[in-house]
Design a protein around this nucleic acid. Sequence first.
DNA 1: AGCATTTTACTGACCAGTCGGTAAAGGAGG
DNA 2: CCTCCTTTACCGACTGGTCAGTAAAATGCT
Lengths: 189, 189
Amino acid sequence: MSNARERILEAAKAAFSERGFDGVSMEEIAQRAGVRKPLIYYYFPSKEVLFEEVWNRALEELENHIFKEVENENYYVRKIKRFLRAYIDFVTSRKVLSKVIEKERASVLDGSGEGDVWKRLKRRYDDFLNRVAQLIEEGKKNELVNPEIDSQTAAKLITEALAASTTSGSVLKSIESFILSGLMGRTGS
Amino acid sequence: MSNARERILEAAKAAFSERGFDGVSMEEIAQRAGVRKPLIYYYFPSKEVLFEEVWNRALEELENHIFKEVENENYYVRKIKRFLRAYIDFVTSRKVLSKVIEKERASVLDGSGEGDVWKRLKRRYDDFLNRVAQLIEEGKKNELVNPEIDSQTAAKLITEALAASTTSGSVLKSIESFILSGLMGRTGS
DNA sequence: AGCATTTTACTGACCAGTCGGTAAAGGAGG
DNA sequence: CCTCCTTTACCGACTGGTCAGTAAAATGCT
């Protein structure tokens, strides 16, 4: 088993999280991995594909962390609270991964990337968003989430908002109650 | 009065909004402005400073649009509703400007940019964030906003969430009520 | 076992092209 | 002539990516 490939991925993850896709050169990744640049191309056909694997791994870890915590809980209010707590926990404890996503989400989502790779990145993120939307939809069926709220929009809004909360521990409770009230409340017009 | 400078800024704005700071070359900006590249350097000392002016203008327009609508309203609930509506209106009607901000906000905020310029960009954005936080603080004084909520965090969260809502018209009401409930509600733990 | 061959993991040297940025010289109007 | 705007021509550094080659490990064959 080659650990060079893994070291490259690790270095790429760190680099992309600091400066984003365009801000990082293959040479930099190679140096951080303690490897010559052509070796990266031995394992990955292009910079884009390398980023794709970093991106997919980040989303997979995020999904695992969040939905594992949620699936064995049947009472919806507890479920959504667990979801929020797990999300916040992920963002604060796995900052590197979170920043990879945060830095490129805007570019991935508005689909300005022209190659196949960027389309796949977008699909992957949309899948994640759909799982969150499904969770909200479930709350509407249980009549615990405001039915006026569009699930897709709420999913986008919540994930975006939570990603921004890399702030320290004490304020997290307020984030949680903020979103919770937003979902359930009915203060509109 | 030279309109070349203005054409350059306009072209830069459009380009940066599509591909972000690192994704755009000075040559591309020059071509889109119908100008040779060195002319950009006649008006702007560097790519960073050019971006700085685009960034500052975007934030200034956003602030004007938002706070102009708010300042002559004294009843707080109407005030915050106007704020949200103006924000959503800006995001949906001035998409180019919104995207400039959205694409670089993560990089600007985590301060990985090393030069003076990036520090100034961050300061500028923090100022904007503080004005939003002040608005929320005002709601706490009027006992209309949940006092558990940290204003700074809420400001970050709301702006981040609103920026993501480039979706079409019908869902905007639900975004508004979502955030409104989040601010006022008290469903926490 | 021992030898030959293929595969794996890796590197130095090097592309062609692009990057941000510059020096110097027009061209136009006063 | 001078000053302001604009261009032509160019630079060194760096970009993503390629290629020929290699040490060592795995495999096949006898």
